[in-house]
């Protein structure tokens, strides 16, 4: 059961910004409802109005834009899974989208809603960190871009101001030849841990020239692990196969793990080590042209 509210249906981002400016914290953005309707039903959030941004034309657009993949805030997980632009430029994203929650949530839930809700146990923010994701926020005073790492501040907390709309997230596609992988683990409805990895290699060379490593769900917010990334750089695939454990140990050291229903901080830190190593090996194998079919219980590898 929902308590009464007024439903705004702006037809442009400008109109939506107008409503938000007027209503302030008494309004909540509504981009799919899979999260916001739940907390409204629970009474955890009480607002006077909902601002439905789903009807804003173009806000669900997924397209190549200036070398980036731009994903409109109201694109659903299902759209992400299927969009040709995603398959062309960030295919791993399509694969991960296929495993978000369940088919009903994927049908209705949106990328923007997911990011703006900032549930720490979610896949997209972690994954997008590995694509140097940047969110575009729009308000009456214009637009601003914010790296995802700065946007997500903590559990259910973002840098979005009450008068701002998350309009899109822009991902930097990995260069050709990059091997990427994503793993999530956990027995609960939402993941206990998610790790995204990318290994970039120079043209023709075997050595890793650059790397991305992002870990999420284990702490208050997803994080990149720069020291672990740096450690991989310069390694050959053989080095990686031999020394992945070192990187994993760095990741486990640096990750900000907190205990909750999903497990203790200690366990999550250890799982970070386990899965960073595993996923590095998967990515390394992919870089070498193999596709290892690793199966672990309660684990999804994309």
């Amino acid at each position: 059961m929902l308590r009464p509210f007024a439903l705004y249906r702006p037809s442009t981002v400008g109109e939506a910004a107008e409503v938000l400016a007027r209503e302030g914290p008494d309004a909540a953005l509504y981009a799919g409802g899979t999260e916001v309707l739940l907390i409204l039903k629970e009474g955890l959030l009480r607002v006077r109005s909902l601002v439905d941004v789903k009807r804003i034309p173009g806000l669900d657009e997924i397209r190549r834009d200036d070398g980036h993949l731009s994903i409109g805030a109201t694109a659903t997980h299902r759209a992400l899974e299927r969009a040709p632009a995603v398959h062309a430029h960030c295919p791993l994203v399509a694969g991960v989208a296929r495993h978000v929650a369940n088919i009903r949530v994927r049908t209705i839930g949106t990328v923007g809603g997911n990011l703006a809700f900032a549930d720490p146990h979610s896949d997209l923010a972690t994954l997008f960190l590995a694509f140097d994701g940047v969110v575009r926020l729009a308000s009456r005073s214009g637009e601003r871009d914010l790296p995802l790492a700065e946007f997500v501040r903590g559990p259910y907390e973002t840098a979005r101001r009450d008068d701002e709309i998350l309009a899109a997230v822009r991902l930097a596609p990995w260069p050709a030849g990059t091997a990427g992988a994503y793993v999530k683990f956990g027995v609960h409805e939402r993941p206990t841990l998610g790790v995204a990895v990318a290994l970039m290699r120079g043209a023709g060379g075997d050595a890793v020239t650059d790397a991305r490593l992002a870990v999420g769900c284990v702490g208050p917010r997803p994080q990149r692990l720069p020291e672990a990334e740096a450690r991989v750089c310069g390694w050959s695939l053989a080095d990686l196969a031999r020394h992945a454990g070192e990187v994993a140990a760095l990741a486990a050291r640096d990750v900000d793990a907190v205990g909750d229903l999903h497990g203790s901080a200690e366990y999550k830190r250890e799982m970070t080590r386990v899965f960073v190593r595993r996923i590095l090996l998967v990515a390394g194998a992919r870089a070498a042209g193999r596709d290892p079919h690793e199966h672990y219980p309660h684990t999804i590898i994309v």
């Binding site: 799982m271 386990v274 219980p297």
Partner: peptide
């Protein structure tokens, strides 16, 4: 059963 010894997950 089988066991993922690193995670403790039983299958």
């Amino acid at each position: 059963i089988s066991l993922d010894e690193e995670t403790g997950a039983i299958c």
